[in-house]
Write a protein that binds this DNA or RNA. Sequence first.
DNA 1: ATCCAGGATGTAT
DNA 2: ATACATCATGGA
Length: 304
Amino acid sequence: MEQGAIPVAELEGSVDLQSTVESGQSYLWDRLDGKMYTTTAAYGGSAWYETVVPPIPGVFDQQAVVRIRQHNGELQWESTTDAVPIVQHLLRLDDDLQAIKAAIPDDPLLERAFEQYAGMRLVRDPVFPCLISFICSAQMRVSRIFGMQRRLAREYGEEIEFNGETYHAFPTPEQMAERSEGELRDLSLGYRAPYVQKTAKLVATGEVDPRAALDLEYEKAREHLTQFVGVGNKVADCVLLFSLGFTEAVPLDTWIQTAIAEQYPDCDQGGYVSTSRAIRKQFGGQYAGYAQTYVFHYLRNGGN
DNA sequence: ATCCAGGATGTAT
DNA sequence: ATACATCATGGA
C-alpha cells in the first residue's frame, strides 16, 4: 500500500471533498461509514471515500484502488499506487475555483450556492462508468442511483484485494455487454436494463466511442453521445460535464428546469437545445456547468 | 394507496 | 420540431 497527503488549504478556492463526491455528480465513490447519500445536510466530517479507478488514458495505465479523506487541511490518500495524479485528475484539483467563480455572473442564486458549498469541484469520472450511471439516473432518486452502481460492481465487476479487503471494479464495457437484459432487470434496473445492455455493447464493439466526443465542438459532442441507447440530451450533458471536461455543459434536469421557470423565465425557450443555449449564456458560458452543479446541489438541499 | 424520482423512447401530429 | 403515453422500481 502507498499513502500520502495532498495539501489543499492553499489550493485556489480550496476543496470540499464531501460536497464534491456527494452532490450527485458521481456515483462511483463509496463512503466507508456506509452513509453515502444518506446525510443530505452538510456533514463536515472527514469520512474516508473509496473507489476503484479503471486505467485513465494519459494518467495511469492500470486500474487502481484509491481511498481518500479530507482531514487537517489535506487530502489524505491510500492506494495501490501513487494516487496523487489520479486524485488530481478525478477531482479536477487543477481547476482555479477563484477564476471560475469570477467568470460566472453575479446572480443572487449563484452567489448563495457558491457560498454555501465553497470548495465543491466538478468531478472527472471515468467515461464508461459515468455513462452507465447516468443512463440509470433516469427517473431515479440520487440515493438509488448510487445503490445501482454499487450493485453492478459487486455482481459483475472484477474483485480486487487491497489492504486486507475485497473491492469491486466497475464492470468493463465487455463484462457489461455479456450480461443479458434479463440479468440486468434482476438487478432492479427496470426499463433501463436494455439501455445499459445495448450501450455497453456499442462501447465494447467499438461501434460508438464515447471519447470521440472529445474532438468535437460542444453541441456536436452532445449529439455524438445521444447515439447510445438511453442517452438523450440531458444524460449526454451529464457525461460531457462530469467525465469529458465540457465545463460549459448544463444538464437540464428537473431541478434546473424548475430554477429556470422560477428565476430565469426568459431562458425557457421550449425545446432542450435552445433552452440550453440560453441558460448556458445566463450562467456565463465556458464554466456554466460549474454554476449548474452548484445550483443543483444547493436546491436539492433545501436552498431557494 | 398514490405519487414521484438528475428522462428516454416510440408514435402520432 | 413538438406533444403524448409508456416504461420498472421502491421509498415516502
